[in-house]
Amino acid sequence: MQDPETKTKKVVEFLQAVTSPGRLNLNFELLNEPRSFTGESPAEISVEFSGPDVALLLARNGELLLSLEHLAAKVLRYEHEEHDRISFDAENFKVLRHQELRLAAEAAIERVQRTGQPFSFAPMSSRERRLIHLALAPSGLPTASSGEGARRFVVLYPAGGKPEAQTTNDDRAQVIRERFRRR
């Protein structure tokens, strides 16, 4: 599709637009040695933010950081499954958040095995849900995702507790698309 220089240039243009005077007060640095947080192939483009607005970036579980990452992925025309090719971070947020998610997964496994009741995680982005699914996999317990869009969350079931069928993605996408058109 595009060569690495074109992609880098597009990301830099996007970041300059976001951080120019009167917008977000942030500095950004493209890292030469991209990091991988999922233990798979490292990201092609890795960006580290610093500056006065980092607190804003990391508020509400990094909502703004993840939003900028999503928009940059879309600017590069990455499809959903390619989103791991770009990674934005500030103050080790991703490392700390991923530790937190792994601990949450371990606690959930212990709890479901002890109580025999399903456990619902808090709503998360698709990448965070994937991390939870991966962390839960060694337990051998059934997992599923439930809820729509931003409110979608992972559920861990006890052994034999069967996840029920989901509504089809097409229906859901249609409903959500309408809802987001005007608000």
Partner: peptide, 28 residues
Amino acid sequence: IGKQGRTARSLRTILAAASMKLKHRFSL
């Protein structure tokens, strides 16, 4: 708008951050 409205939501998150900085609400 994006799949499941995610791109629109990301734009609104940026507006919410700007709203906080400027102490004035912006909607999209």
